[in-house]
């Protein structure tokens, strides 16, 4: 428990520092950080899944569901509060995850990736066809309010930055705590050896489904956050290239450290934006080369620069060994 307390304090301090720093940053960077944080939340979900050894290539699915639900709640049902919109988006995506999760929990590796990709493309096809929600052009979403305060032109950049920073920090903390819980540690055990976990009497499928639902809730929150600050949504939220970017972000971060995903997300946004500025004709080439170099030279992600993934399982193993020893002595008595 003390480790969680320590993390909570550290994250709160980091959040305060971030919010203070935000006051001094130029507006374009604030918006870029907002986008990086919103997308990072989706990547956070992928990290939860990656710890269990699977990668979804279709997080665009839940990203779009969260975004569309938040957008529709704002435009059709007059929901104006940003936090409520994020919660709605997240809840809707979690429900979708709860439907799809148990079906997908059986599959691993490339099959899991392909199935999730296919599901997201099915949603894309539906959205393009749905003229009621703007078809392929999507629709614009009005600026929401934030906990009773109105957001206007002058403070919107900072307000959205603050909102996404707070939500991203809280969610990262929750994910970190979850990863340290026994249920969270189970993912690593599944990643190592599923059968052994099942012989120990735990349902691997249930664990995978729960991870999927958590990832969906995070994806939905990220989608809602993006839509709120961007003011627009269209079916591309569910397109495969979008999902590919999330996977890249998660791989770039590595699953060793949850906060690393935000650094990865920021790095991706910066590279994309600056290659667009300096190589308008060949920005895809620049982005592609960047991806390749990262995969080649940072195979375990930026998170591996400061956190060691091996620490957690070894500690868990220690705990398990102690428990086993205790059981043995109890039995002997």
């Amino acid at each position: 428990m003390s480790r969680n307390l320590h993390s909570t304090l550290l994250y709160s301090a980091a959040l305060v520092a971030l919010l203070l720093a935000g006051l001094m940053l130029p507006q374009w960077l604030l918006f870029l950080l907002t986008m990086a944080a919103s997308h990072g939340v989706v990547g956070l979900g992928l990290i939860v899944m990656m710890r269990g050894g699977v990668v979804s290539f279709g997080q665009g699915l839940v990203f779009a569901i969260g975004g569309y639900v938040a957008g529709l709640a704002a435009t059709r049902y007059g929901v104006t509060d940003a936090v409520v919109l994020v919660l709605l988006g997240s809840a809707a995506a979690a429900i979708a995850g709860a439907i799809a999760g148990p079906l997908l929990a059986r599959y691993r590796s490339i099959f899991f990736a392909m199935l999730t990709l296919a599901l997201s493309m099915v949603l894309y096809g539906i959205l393009v066809k749905s003229s009621a929600v703007g078809g392929s052009d999507g629709f614009n979403v009005p600026r929401p309010s934030l906990l009773g305060f109105s957001i206007n032109e002058t403070n919107s950049d900072y307000a959205f930055f603050a909102l996404s920073s707070v939500i991203a920090t809280v969610l990262t903390l929750l994910v970190t705590i979850y990863c340290r819980s026994s249920r969270g540690l189970l993912s690593l055990a599944i990643r190592d050896n599923e059968l052994r976990v099942e012989y120990l009497g735990t349902s691997v499928r249930a664990a995978m489904a729960i991870n999927f639902i958590i990832a969906a809730a995070l994806g939905g929150a990220g989608g809602a956050l993006t839509v709120i600050s961007l003011g627009h949504i269209d079916p591309n939220f569910s397109y495969w290239t979008r999902s590919g970017e999330f996977v890249f972000m998660a791989i770039l971060a590595g699953h060793a450290s949850a906060p690393a995903v935000f650094l990865a997300s920021l790095l991706l946004e910066l590279v994309r934006s600056f290659s667009n500025k300096y190589f308008p004709d060949t920005w895809q080439l620049a982005l592609g080369l960047f991806l390749l170099l990262i995969i080649l030279f940072l195979p375990k992600g930026v998170g591996s620069l400061w956190a060691k993934p091996e620490r957690l399982p070894r500690q868990a193993a220690e705990k398990a060994k102690q428990a086993a020893a205790r059981n043995a002595t109890e039995a002997a008595e």
């Binding site: 918006f31 986008m35 999507g138 946004e269």
Partner: peptide, 10 residues
């Protein structure tokens, strides 16, 4: 995509 356009416009 449109998301990128909003960011780059800003």
């Amino acid at each position: 995509g449109a998301t990128k356009q909003v960011q780059e416009l800003r």
